Amino acid sequence: MLLGFVRDRMTLFWAVLFPLMFLVLFGDLLTNDGAPKLEVAQVGDVAALDDMAPDAREALEQSIEITPATDEAKALREVRDGDLAAVITEEGDRLVVHYSQADQVTAARVRGTFQGIVDSANLAAAGGTPAFTLETQQVEDESLEPIQYVTPGLLGWAIAMSATFGAAVNLVSWRQSGLLRRLRLAPIRTSSVVLARVGVSVLVALGQTAIFLGLAVGAFGLVLSGSWPLVIPLVLAGTLAFLSIGLLAGSISKTEEGAVGLANFIVLPMAFLSGSFFSLEGAPDWLQAISRLLPLRHLNEAMLDVMVRGQGVEAIWAPMAILLGFAAVCSLIASRVFRWDA
């Protein structure tokens, strides 16, 4: 029995190597101390920052990059768009911190950091009344629930799972049952078969999106921005990208079990590395670099931009180009390794 287990490469991979891969991934995430600097804009004079002792200022700049700004409205837009972590202003004795709740890890770091700055400034007042108070203001509607920021990533993951698994498993199943061979001999063009499969995947993805958003709005208080319909072209482009990955996995795999395993190997790590389940803020640079190469990260971020941040068409052009380019490359490779017969 033990010898049979060792000889079964697929079982060995899923039982030992796949869990070890996640151990390495999470081990590096959880032990990484080099969180990236918070990019903050300072509008006007802020005494709590300007009057800091040189050594305290130097220590602060290890974790925050402070840039002077003159246009507060523009800086606040950059916070909404995710380009800045916060905007800092001073109103009398109040230090006002404007931040975005879209990335909850960054939001917590911003609030904690500036609470520490205010506490240090008040401690330096040496027994007098507190010199400053901290006021935090999120740039989005404060009535919004955490579901706003969770939904885009989970929807992206659901689309990736459905398109990849559906294409991979169906392709292998059709090959093993001889259906592909019969379709090849039938008086219909191959392009018609492919387009039919693409149409089914697109309809399933649109149905997923409707159910997902309907449940989130009706049961969990999701509030969609005015530009939320831009999710539809993103879903279409994302479906094509992951359908092509599924076709590639199905073209390579010889059995349904192998297709499922390969699809799992691709989609599950990608979901973690693309921020579908938690923010990658604070992840090491090498992991961030890998994440930016993955189509799911671009899909997730674009849906967050249009569903939560209220950005317009300009927010989806680049992600859609990346997704469609990914679909074209994977489809080309799949066409080269595709087999009609088992």
Results as ranks from 00 to 15, higher is better:
L2G: 15
L3G: 04
F5N: 12
V6E: 07
D8P: 06
M10E: 08
F13G: 07
F18S: 04
F18N: 07
L25K: 06
D28V: 13
G34W: 03
G34T: 08
A35H: 10
K37V: 02
L38C: 06
L38H: 01
L38G: 02
L38I: 04
A41L: 09
V43E: 12
G44M: 13
D50W: 06
D51V: 09
P54H: 07
A56M: 06
A56I: 06
R57I: 02
E58P: 02
E58G: 08
E58Y: 10
A59Q: 14
L60S: 04
E61A: 12
E61F: 13
Q62N: 12
E65Q: 15
I66R: 07
T67R: 15
A69M: 08
R80W: 04
G82W: 00
L84P: 07
A85C: 11
V87C: 05
V87N: 00
T89C: 02
E90T: 08
E90M: 14
R94H: 10
Y99H: 11
Y99F: 14
Y99D: 01
D103V: 09
A107L: 09
A108L: 03
V110M: 07
F114G: 04
F114T: 05
S120M: 10
P130G: 01
P130W: 08
A131D: 14
A131Y: 05
F132R: 00
L134E: 05
Q138K: 13
D141T: 12
L144V: 12
E145V: 10
P146V: 09
Y149D: 11
V150R: 09
V150G: 00
W157G: 00
M161I: 14
A163S: 14
T164G: 05
V169C: 11
S177D: 14
G178W: 09
R182I: 00
P187M: 11
L195G: 02
A196M: 12
V198Y: 09
G199D: 08
V200W: 07
V202Q: 10
V202T: 10
L203H: 03
A210Y: 11
L213G: 06
A216C: 10
A216L: 06
V217Y: 01
V217E: 05
A219K: 15
G226M: 03
S227D: 15
W228Y: 10
W228S: 10
L230A: 03
I232G: 09
L234S: 02
T239Q: 11
F242Y: 11
I245M: 15
L248P: 00
S251V: 08
S251P: 09
I252M: 09
A259C: 13
V260Y: 02
L262K: 02
L262H: 03
A263K: 04
F265L: 15
P269T: 01
P269E: 02
A271Y: 00
A271F: 00
F277Q: 12
S279H: 09
S279M: 07
A283F: 00
D285C: 02
Q288C: 04
S291Y: 14
R297G: 07
H298L: 13
L299I: 03
E301S: 11
D305W: 02
V306T: 07
R309D: 09
G310L: 01
G312I: 12
G312C: 13
A315T: 07
A321F: 03
L324G: 07
L324Q: 04
F326R: 01
F326G: 02
A327H: 05
V329D: 05
V329R: 10
W340L: 09
